[in-house]
């Protein structure tokens, strides 16, 4: 009986962890490429949920068409976001300028969404209906398994892009030293735009995945905080660390509900504080500080 409960909690934890990992990965990619924390990442995530809601519920698109249209919209969002929020300020002498502009973007996105869809939360039906009954009353909703599947697929895809493809290597190079990259002939505007596109698409799909589990509302943006927590626990700036840290956050959060449902966020952030006290660089931070 207990094992069944733990298994359920583990699956839920891992699936939420996947969502946080997708968010954290998007942030880390941008931090590495342009050196800026993107505070609007949570709003891009929320926007992803709203776009998919509009396409499936309001426009009645079948899932395959919806996915293609949604991805195109995310690519557009990523590009627009880069040219509106980052590009005009990239030569600013004050590094905080871009961070503030991302804060501004997050407010703008939230308000635009409220203008279009109103402030009443809307409901997105599950992407995959049904429940997997393992034994007795140990039941796992397919939606959670679906999130874990798609999440790991996306994360693996990003790793493969940066590890195996020459394009990814050039993007890594441009992220590590944009001056040298330009001298070699890497068009850094393209690599930066691609990073924004990948980041926006990742969180957009993340928003789609999570939307059936929660109501689609502007408060989805606050998921970013858990992504941040995962990223810091893993070690700021390291993609692998961000993924592992986020999965950890998801599992901790889900097992915290054994003791308290109301204060599960408090438990997560207490763990974050403890990690920061014991290991300020996060679990994978050391390697990075040597690297840079």
């Amino acid at each position: 009986m207990n094992i069944g409960l733990y298994l359920q909690l583990l699956v839920i934890g891992l699936s939420m962890g996947m969502i946080y990992a997708i968010l954290a990965m998007g942030i880390v990619l941008l931090v590495r490429a342009v050196g800026v924390l993107n505070f609007a990442q949570g709003e891009l995530f929320m926007l992803g949920a709203y776009v998919c809601y509009a396409l499936t519920v309001q426009l009645h698109m079948p899932i395959y068409v919806m996915l293609i249209v949604a991805l195109l919209i995310f690519v557009l969002f990523g590009t627009l976001f880069m040219f509106a929020v980052y590009w005009p300020l990239r030569n600013s002498k004050w590094p905080a300028t871009i961070i503030i502009s991302t804060l501004g973007a997050s407010v703008v996105l939230k308000e635009v969404v409220k203008l279009i869809w109103g402030s009443v939360p809307v409901v997105q039906p599950p992407i995959i209906k049904g429940v997997l009954v393992l034994w007795g009353n140990v039941r796992i909703e397919y939606q959670y398994l679906f999130i874990i599947g798609i999440g790991s697929l996306l994360i693996t895809a990003v790793f493969l892009l940066f590890d195996k493809l020459f394009l990814g290597r050039a993007m890594q190079a441009a992220a590590q030293d944009s001056y040298a990259a330009q001298l070699l002939g890497i068009p850094t505007i393209v690599t930066t735009a691609l990073t924004y596109i990948i980041s926006a698409s990742l969180v957009g799909v993340g928003g789609w995945l999570v939307s059936p589990l929660f109501l689609v509302s502007t408060s989805l943006g606050s998921f970013l905080l858990k992504g941040f927590a995962g990223m810091v626990i893993g070690g700021l700036g390291d993609v692998k660390g961000a993924v592992i840290g986020s999965l950890l956050v998801g599992v901790i959060e889900s097992f915290a509900t054994l003791f308290t449902a109301t204060y599960k966020d408090a438990v997560v952030f207490s763990v974050l504080i403890i990690v920061l006290i014991v290991r300020p660089t996060g679990f994978f931070g050391q390697k990075i500080s040597e690297k840079v």
Binding site: A170, Q172, A180, G185, I186
Partner: peptide, 20 residues
Amino acid sequence: HVFPGLTVEENLEVGTINWR
């Protein structure tokens, strides 16, 4: 200005970007 997080060979490989 070498790319610190890439290996030596990866650094060299990136150098081919201008014709590749």
